[in-house]
Structures are given as structure tokens and as C-alpha cells.
Amino acid sequence: MAEPRRVLVLVKYVPDAAGERSFADADSTTVRTTEGLLSELDEYAVEEALSLAESGGWEVTVATMGPEQAGAAIRKALQMGADAGIHISDEALHGTDALGTSAVLAAAVRKFSDEGGCDLLLCGMASTDAGMSVIPAMLAERLGLPQVSFASQLSVEGDTVRIRRDSETATETIESRLPAVVSVTDQINEPRYPSFKGIMAAKKKPVTTWSLADLGIEPAEVGLAASWSPVTEVSKRPPRGQGTIITDDGEGGVALAEFLAAEKFI
């Protein structure tokens, strides 16, 4: 049997939108929560990798960069069926911005590739917390790989990946040679729930932890202090106002139109 090809899925551990949230620092938008989870949008990337694996000949590894709790995101992916996990974790990473994150992930991909090859990189289309959608592009740039974003369908034939991208005006079919960085949308599949068998099996799957030293990155290059886009101020959204009640005494329609015009709705 031929060696399986290797797909690396980059996933993020994000705050549970249903949980209590607060900002971790006064000068970053890093959100601290009691509960976190594998970003829902990354589940689509994991699912896509798993269905590739089910078609035969692929091995699925998931990687995340994040604090100790972020291991939960890897565990979820392993429970869904991924084969192995890589957890990039280091005290110095706290507060790292997107540029820094892409540098760390690029180093991790190189290390992963050096150790056994990397044929495809999959990402979600955005994180559900920061929602910037920039990591796939930055990563591709740093690695000198083709980048194909927002795939709503994906197939691999030989050394070619073909994706479909749906936009409002057109549907594009794009081909790229492998390896490539592909980000997938929430239209591409229906992520599976982990089964009990998957949960039990995940216990025995390997998870490797890499520190910045393992990746050859200086702590000073990352973290809050090295951030290119420092946050100058963070404030909570003001509580919702009372609302305006217009009593219709015959002129209600006019008053309503004036209100909407004043608020620039019309």
C-alpha cells in the first residue's frame, strides 16, 4: 500500500458564544471565557478532511495554536475521527495578532512537512470570534503556496485540488496544484457529531505539543508586545436604549417616517 497523503487542518479554540465572556486584557480583544470549543466554522474543515480520508489514502492531522484549554479543540477533532493532533502552546503566545499567528502556524506547517510531508492544508473560512478570515492567505504567502479560499465544494485528483466558490454573481471552479492552502465555507458539508466509538478511540490518539522553541521562534517576535495592531481602547457595548414609542394620533405615519429618516434607515 502506498504511504497515505497528509492533510493538516488548522483549527481554532474559540469562546463559547453561549458562555460568560470578558476581555482578557485592557489592550486586546482576546476574549476570556469559562468555556471554549472548536470553532464551528473549523468543523467544516475537519469534516472535509475526514471525508477525504474516508475516500481512501489520506491521514488527517489537526493543529491548533492556543493555551492549554485549546487542547479541547484538538480533542473534539480527534473524536470526530482525525488521526493525530498538534498543539502549539507557549506562554509567550498570549495576545499574538494575526500576523504573528500566521508566522507561528507557518513554522508549524514547515516542521510538520519536514517530518512526513504535507499535501494539503485546510482551514475554516473565518474564526467565529475574531472573524478576520486572513490567516489562510497570510499562511499561503509565508509558505509560498497557492491559496484557494471559500470553497463550497472540494475534490482532489492526483496532484490537483478543485474547488467551487459561490459568489452572488458567479460560481467559479478553481483548480490548484497541491500542496495548497484551502479554506472552506459552511456550505461545503454537514459536520458529523463524534460517536461514542470516536470518543473512546480519541483517548489513544497521539497529540504532540510544540513550544516556540520547538518551532525556532523567538518569544519577542510574538505576543501582545509584538502585535502590529495594538488595541487602543476596549469598551463594552452600551446597554440597549429604551426605544421610541410613537402614538398614532392621525400623524403616526409621518412621525414614523421622520424617525426612520433621522436614524438614516430611509
Binding site: R192, Y193, S195, F196, K197, M200
Partner: peptide, 18 residues
Amino acid sequence: ELGLFGLTAPERFGGSGG
């Protein structure tokens, strides 16, 4: 699909041997 019916069945019948 979630494997609920096969929780206590052995793997050779598609269960999870739980």
C-alpha cells in the same frame, strides 16, 4: 449515524462495543 443504536453492540455489527 450518531451510533446510538449500536452503543452496546460489538464492532463487527457496526456497534461501538460500549
